[in-house]
């Protein structure tokens, strides 16, 4: 599998990362290197093997349905670059 420059540009756009056209060849090389390395895994025959998603007791622990959190607006808004009263604010987004 090999990525062309257009795909690299698209991946960057989907991830909202601004990149310079001049950086494209280097990024393309790096990403293709990573993909090529990962592709070695295809050499392993995993037919009839259940996918492993974790180690040990691989099941989700559940919590009871009780309210234990919230009412912490100051903490929640503490890292906001911009806020107005009780709200986060962001540059206007209207579709």
């Amino acid at each position: 599998m090999s990525l062309d420059p257009a795909t690299v540009r698209r991946i960057a756009r989907l991830a909202r990362i601004g990149i310079d056209e001049s950086d494209l060849p280097a990024l393309q090389r790096e990403l293709n290197g990573i993909l090529g390395w990962i592709e070695q895994l295809n050499e392993v025959d995993v037919d009839n093997v259940e996918p492993m998603v974790g180690t040990g007791h691989a099941a989700l622990r559940m919590r009871e349905d009780v309210v234990t959190d919230g009412d912490a607006r100051e903490a929640v808004l503490s890292n906001a670059p911009d806020a107005a009263g009780p709200y986060y604010t962001v540059p206007k987004v209207v579709e």
Binding site: V67, A72, R73
Partner: peptide
């Protein structure tokens, strides 16, 4: 009563950003 993955209240109509966990 609480959210799918956090212990914040799932009830409707609280003061803005008060039913929010980190």
């Amino acid at each position: 009563r609480s959210k799918l993955f956090s212990g914040a209240s799932a009830s409707y109509g609280g003061e803005p950003n008060t039913h929010v966990s980190l």
